[in-house]
Design a protein around this nucleic acid. Structure first.
Lengths: 122, 122
DNA sequence: TCAACACATCGACAACCGTCAATATGAATG
DNA sequence: CATTCATATTGACGGTTGTCGATGTGTTGA
């Protein structure tokens, strides 16, 4: 397994997806499970990163290059690069290099998994 | 409005709830909106707090007293108290005092709102 | 080969966070 | 009252995080 992108794989069992509400609210979360989910929540729990995810997702073709993202913030290029790295290593953003540019795209299943865990469908 | 419990009120408009996917993924999140949501995500982005929420929600009657919660962790009583305070001030946990005991309960709408925002229904 | 460009990494710094021991508060009970 | 019990607050400490400027890396085009 490559160094990053350890996210997703929250492994919802059929039982968990069927019942009244989200796994989080139905039964005590194990320590291991909590430690799987927390890095994803940490990655999202920053205004810059949350907006980065949003901007990337809303971009044409579902991806955006770093140069565009830099212009969306009043922050230095290394800072944006850092936040993108955090999101990528959490498994939330995919990274593709084309020529000189690097494009990021949102892994929507991962966000859906988190949402399913904390909010549940019911 | 009492000092804490500023959470929820993510004010999903009808338009936002109807379309293809979550607000987060459909259009760029405004700075103000991000700053509304981030405190909630920050509150959840800790293994102890995430488990606290889970344990409280899964408890009989949907609430749990601090004394029981203390026993669920290998942490000092002040530390648990601190985490409960964070969750309460974020608006995720309700607080009720009955006699000598304090009971916390999960505000499920708040978690549902967060889930709807980040994961969307689609 | 060289210069320009896009992006990442490094090193440093201040601010924030999780934890604890000690202590305070406040309710029940004798 | 005095005591005991449940919970909160305080103050301190080390570790983490967000930010920057400086620099490195790799690609493109002259």
């Amino acid at each position: 397994m490559s160094k990053s992108a350890a996210g997703s794989q929250l492994t919802l069992t059929p039982v968990e997806t069927a019942a009244c509400c989200s796994p989080l609210l139905r039964e005590p979360l194990s320590l291991e499970r909590a430690e799987q989910v927390v890095p994803l929540l940490k990655a999202l729990a920053d205004p810059v990163r949350l907006r980065l995810v949003s901007i990337v997702a809303a971009s044409e073709g579902g991806e955006a290059c770093v140069c565009d993202l830099n212009d969306s913030f009043d922050l230095s290029q290394p800072t944006i690069s850092h936040h993108l790295k955090v999101l990528h290593e959490a498994g939330i953003l995919d990274r593709t290099k084309r020529g000189v540019w690097v494009y990021y795209a949102v892994r929507r299943e991962v966000l859906a998994d988190i949402a399913a865990l904390i909010g549940g469908s019911a």
